[in-house]
């Protein structure tokens, strides 16, 4: 089976040769299996977003190769393999909620009937059915983020890329959203690459946590999270949950010291 994402020997240098040159990533090797939920975790500025954006073909690597579903990243983008969710919901304010969710389908030339039906289904999934006709400004931050997730899922992308999607949310909403994303992930079977700097969030959600170190960004360790599926509030009290937290924290600490 081809891997969902295969990153080999990737380096990224921003503005090479100029005084504001930044070596964001060095020697990244990472393989993600289809249907995996993988988190990128690390201190601010370690290159998590950059790595995610390289996978999504929003940034090109300086050296190395990226294969997505056995294709190059630009080809995967043309094939509409990616659903992307940023930290900001990035809704189009002139479109109602349902028309925001329909936008990718519209761009992909799907028929009106299919669009409406898909958008409905996605809004049901994120429990915003009654808000279909609202404009983004009429929603709370958490609701906007759920619309962004619905939009990213509307065309059934094989890979979901999420960059700190819950960064702006309060703890309660955040935990609810985490449960929701897990439910959606279980239902759709997509591959998820998830950026966060919250250790509990990474451990709770992921099948594997990729811990990164800063300057230059490198992979410091990968922790398998072999907690039982499906995960729920009980998982957070599981003794293995604490062991995994500690394991991840220790790698981060060793990175910090060096």
């Amino acid at each position: 089976m081809t891997s969902a994402v295969a990153i080999a020997a990737v380096d990224k240098v921003f503005n090479p040769g100029s005084t504001d040159q930044v070596e964001a990533l060095r020697g990244i090797d990472l393989t993600v299996a289809p249907g995996e939920f993988i988190s990128l975790l690390g201190p601010s500025g370690c290159g998590k977003s950059t790595l995610l954006r390289i996978v999504g073909d929003l940034v090109t690597p300086t050296t190395g190769t990226v294969a997505v579903n056995g294709k190059t990243a630009p080809q995967a983008r043309k094939d509409r393999d990616y659903g992307i969710v940023f930290q900001q919901a990035t809704l189009y304010e002139w479109r109602t909620v349902v028309r925001n969710v329909e936008l990718p389908l519209e761009v992909m030339g799907r028929g009106k009937e299919e669009r409406e039906q898909r958008a409905r289904a996605m809004l049901d999934l994120v429990q915003l059915t009654e808000f279909a006709a609202h404009f983004p400004y009429q929603l709370s931050g958490g609701m906007q983020q759920r619309v962004a997730i619905a939009r990213a899922l509307s065309f059934e992308p094989s890979i979901l890329l999420m960059d700190e999607p819950f960064g702006a949310l309060d703890e309660m909403t955040r935990e609810r959203m985490q449960a929701e994303v897990l439910r959606i992930w279980a239902q759709t079977g997509t591959t998820v690459v998830f950026v966060t700097h919250s250790i509990p969030e990474a451990v709770f959600l992921s099948s594997r946590v990729v811990v990164m170190s800063a300057r230059p960004g490198r992979i410091a360790g990968i922790v398998d999270i072999d907690l039982p599926q499906p995960r729920d509030e009980v998982t957070r009290e599981h003794p293995r949950f604490y062991e995994k937290l500690t394991e991840v924290r220790e790698i981060l600490r060793s990175v910090d010291r060096s």
């Binding site: 073909d57 929003l58 992909m108």
Partner: peptide, 25 residues
């Protein structure tokens, strides 16, 4: 905003879609 354009890019949107669905509105 860059994010709005990047999303359209990620959908593989044609320039005319970017113009009519994002830039003009």
């Amino acid at each position: 905003p860059a994010g709005s354009l990047e999303l359209m890019d990620s959908y593989g949107a044609a320039p005319r879609d970017v113009l009519f669905k994002v830039r003009i509105p």
